[in-house]
Design a protein around this nucleic acid. Structure first.
Lengths: 237, 237
DNA sequence: CGCCGTTTTGAAGACAGTCAAGATGCGTGG
DNA sequence: CCACGCATCTTGACTGTCTTCAAAACGGCG
């Protein structure tokens, strides 16, 4: 992954633009044009990239790293809405709906982002209409994920939701080894709990049960080894 | 509302196209072009418009009526994802993501829809790029609603969720009268429950409590009179 | 190696879900 | 227009499970 990143400072971020799905399909020259408009920035773990309610008028694309998008309720509880990784973007509602940011965005690790200002981006869309088709596709994907989340929260048991999030992490961050699939967790227990809308103590208990059942093995607090994927999938229903 | 609808069969559905937000901004001639591509259809209450998993390759726009979008879980429980009304559309993920329909769609009352075939629509988007910008805007709105739903389900009390859905109905279907705001409910208790992910008995109990508190008055099973909007808003936190 | 923050575990309580029975409302047909 | 019957809604009692509060264990970082 990291071999693709561009730190040379001279390629005008062409690679950066190349790696972002919404610019797939553009040719060399067009990418150059896009790259000219990109501003890069870096955030450390824990730093806030976007504040809920702000109207940062640019599209933010994640080039490297992980970002959590979340809101606070009145009681101060945090609800995580998205976990963004390489190639994901946010800020689109500012650009297209003219609305304020709908959530806070915080870097979960050292994160590189690309920003494109509203005017520049609108110009881009006008010039390369395929970009909007790509964006619509990406938004549809996000909608589907959120629809599934709503369904999970509304109708599924706590066990099913935990299995679901573990399987999501397997897909995104899982690495096969001889014993099973090793997952480097992007969240603490607290984060996982807020991601699926339950208390952190509950997730502790349920993970212990999964471990007792021989389905997973917890390695410290930041890794989980999935021993029996089949069994985990059976928990989903 | 109904005065705007077109039953003449000769205007080539221009009015129909005019009423749909995603075609706002097109001129007379362009609307004519759009209207040429539109197929109309009518559904009665309870009829299925779209099946989950199907790949109906057209964009469906609601011209008149109400539609619920929902999924079933393995256990047969229903989770309502959206309540679509005049001007809303669905089927976009088929067109842009090349995916199967993510949910069933069922008419809640007599409903008129407009359909545009995939090829025709792609041609339209190519010809009038503003349409895609409008679509992106609409998708952003839908995302925001869903994000709020996720937050509600994840962190809010049952009372807050009920207040939230009542206020949504007030906004969409509320009519002021001398005593308060009259809401014609689009759903049965069962539907409301599935919309916010709780059991139907629970919603009965909570509505009774709200009535005892003098905040609402239930009129039969299909109407609710909101007596104290302020108090209902206070329930939100 | 030691401390601090996170996680786990325990026990108690609250609250929504379920099952079941009774009441109400709605649409039908007479 | 009224009356009937079915479907939906309400109410009650109980169960199960998640949350909360508190304390102990653990892990990770300096």
């Amino acid at each position: 992954m990291k071999t693709n990143s561009c730190d040379c400072g001279t390629c005008r971020h062409k690679l950066c633009a190349q790696r972002v799905p919404i610019f797939f399909g553009l040719n060399e020259e067009e990418l150059s044009h896009v790259a000219d408009l990109i501003q890069r920035r870096q955030y450390l773990k824990g730093e806030i990239i976007q504040l809920e309610g702000s109207d940062a008028d640019c599209l933010t694309i994640i080039n490297q790293g992980k970002v959590k998008a979340f809101r606070y309720t009145q009681e101060g509880k945090e609800q995580i809405l998205y976990l963004f990784s390489e190639g994901d973007f946010f800020g689109e509602s500012n650009l297209f709906g003219g609305r304020k940011a709908a959530y806070h965005a915080e870097a979960l690790e050292r994160t590189h982002i690309c920003m494109i200002a509203r005017n520049d981006f609108q110009e881009l869309v006008r010039r390369y209409p395929e970009i909007s088709v790509k964006i619509i596709g990406a938004l549809c994907t996000r909608l589907e994920r959120l629809e599934t989340t709503v369904q999970n929260m509304g109708t599924r048991s706590v066990e099913a939701r935990i299995s679901s999030v573990l399987l999501e992490f397997v897909e995104k961050y899982g690495v096969k080894n001889s014993k099973g699939i090793l997952i480097a967790l992007p969240f603490s227990r607290e984060g996982m709990a807020s991601y699926i809308g339950i208390a952190r103590e509950t997730i502790s208990r349920k993970l212990t049960l999964l471990q007792d059942a021989g389905i997973i093995e917890m390695i410290g607090n930041k890794k989980i080894l999935l021993l029996n994927e089949e069994a985990l999938r059976r928990e989903l229903d």
